[in-house]
Write a protein that binds this DNA or RNA. Structure first.
Lengths: 337, 337
DNA sequence: TTGTATGCGTTATCAC
DNA sequence: GTGATAACGCATACAA
């Protein structure tokens, strides 16, 4: 089934069919011809061949997206938003995890060989060298949930605000011995959440004990280990802000293994309101972040850049506002002994 | 950067470059010519244009995969296995969720327009009509973790075995009042897990109370609701087999809200050993299933079918053996009152 | 062993 | 308004 078959059946030349399919009503085609062609297309179930169209137009209507790991629930929201927006705009999202890519010769082969029109980078692990290589390709890319010195083509969330309101919640509950298991500071999100946290504590004139700030790695294990460290301190904190959902899970587990009751002995507040947060025991108090919206925005932005042929260096950074407290059971008022 | 540029620089004709890149050493090319060409390719960083190659060869080296939802942790393992195997075989995996597809005209447009060479279907929600439409396309597809009357092109797990050993574990612990929140029976997995469960109970001469069998839908909510039903029975069960991880989470939450202590008051065993199972409170006893291996096998199988041009009707079904008890804290010996 | 010619299916440009 | 034609970049059959 190709365009010639449609043309023959509709009694016109293939190029006419192509025009009807590629241009809107402003193009001068006799109304009845257009209708006959469209009817024939529908009848035969004709769909333009993707490869041929790509070759001719030098665009694929595909957008790539690199994530670290499909099993991280945070990324499912971003992917979902991105996928939905892509579909809405007539694009297809091609998601691959870091692990996959590493097997190929180049991280960016899809971009080089014309498989995709642009790339969303939502992984933390590309180093400066990789990004430099990427920038030299002169193809649109957007950093998602990540910002790096020297690049303004990013979409991020208001992580500083998130850290701020997490700390605010704990302070309002009367806590003063407040700890924070952070994300890695190189990631931007980790540093900004910490800064927001620190700002709120400073505003309340609460001195942050250095031993209460534990640098984590956004992993289950790191949450577990750092929480263990905190709970073996001479004076353990009464509240902990955990910088992402995996840290939260690891931290909860560590506390419970040590016999600490959440929230009676220790309050925990996390970031990212994933689907299972409400069914944890206890249900986790979190800051809900607009991950879905960030996915949508990233796709919207890259499509815009693709279509406007805007060089990456001229793209402006975008911060999606939002983040709100979802109060559940893992935090409660401080009870002085 | 195209093949002609390489050819010119290497002092040969483009067709020679093409041959060097597309055929192995059996093809007669002067050794030094081949080496010079390969060196030039490397030097210039030449990568063949994907669209042009597709158009010519009528294959894309891409495999599509439909999943219901990126947020379901079960699918991350399958995807990961599939993606890894695909990369290893020189293919790219294009994953899209059901939601995305529904926005397009056709469920299978990617298959029709030649974007992908074959399709893995790991979603439950395609009805008979969809599958019939798909079958008529005469393109390779494989049902993953799902079997349907009339189709033998599937890869599944040994779900009956999983149900059997889950029940076995509970029986060995001395339970007799054993309930089961099932998956939907239309899915194959749900029915087979139930059958395995039932077989083991039959073997032990345990009569299954009809009210102990609750039909669920593989969702958090359904686990929650059905568990609530079970716990309000005049004689609640002392052990429950929950048919997937989402049901497990919902069920645990329902039990805890009602003041039941897991496992002292009620034991819970689930299926699928996802990353956070060990950090739940209590840590969930599960049956670990070879999801990753199923993803690998599905890709391997579809590539084989693509390359052998084997019609779907001649493909044989495949069951991946495996499934083992991961003993944690959510199950314990029955304590008679 | 290498070069030449052709066509994959589509769309853009030009002619009518 | 519509038809003819060339070109996108590559791989292959055939010629040399």
């Amino acid at each position: 089934m190709k365009i010639k078959d449609v043309a023959k059946k509709a009694g016109v030349h293939a190029s006419v069919v192509s025009r009807v399919l590629n241009h809107d009503a402003t193009l001068k085609i006799k109304k009845e011809t257009r209708e006959r062609i469209l009817a024939t297309v529908k009848e035969l179930g004709y769909v333009p061949n993707h490869a041929a169209r790509n070759l001719k137009k030098n665009e694929t209507k595909m957008i790539g997206m690199i994530i670290p790991d499909f099993s991280n629930p945070v990324y499912s929201s971003i992917i979902h938003g991105a996928e939905t927006m892509a579909a809405q705009e007539g694009y297809t999202l091609l998601v691959y995890s870091k692990k996959h890519i590493a097997k190929n010769n180049s991280y960016f082969s899809h971009l080089v060989d014309g498989k995709i029109d642009g790339l969303l980078i939502a992984t933390l692990e590309l180093d400066g060298q990789d990004l430099k290589e990427l920038a030299e390709l002169d193809k649109p890319f957007i950093l998602v949930n990540r910002s790096i010195e020297g690049f303004n083509n990013y979409v991020v969330l208001d992580d500083e605000h998130a850290g701020y309101i997490a700390a605010d919640h704990l302070i309002e509950l009367g806590h003063t011995n407040i700890a924070h298991i952070t994300g890695p500071f190189e990631t931007g999100t980790g540093l900004k959440r910490y800064n927001g946290f620190k700002n709120r504590l400073d505003n309340a004139n609460i001195t942050i004990k250095p031993e209460y700030i534990r640098k984590g790695t956004y992993s289950l294990l790191s949450g577990y280990e750092e929480m263990n460290q905190l709970l073996t301190l001479p004076e353990p904190p009464t509240a902990v802000f955990t910088a992402n959902i995996l840290i939260s899970l690891g931290a909860m587990r560590a506390a419970q293994e040590k016999g600490f009751v959440i929230p009676d002995d220790i309050s925990i507040i996390g970031i990212h309101d994933v689907a299972f947060a409400p069914v944890l025991n206890p249900a986790l108090t979190t800051i809900n972040m607009p991950l879905y919206e960030m996915g949508e925005a990233a796709v919207q932005k890259i499509i815009e850049n693709i279509q406007a042929k805007r060089p990456n260096s001229e793209v402006k950074g975008l911060m999606i506002k939002g983040g709100e407290l979802i109060l559940r059971e893992s935090t409660s008022a401080h009870k002085p002994k």
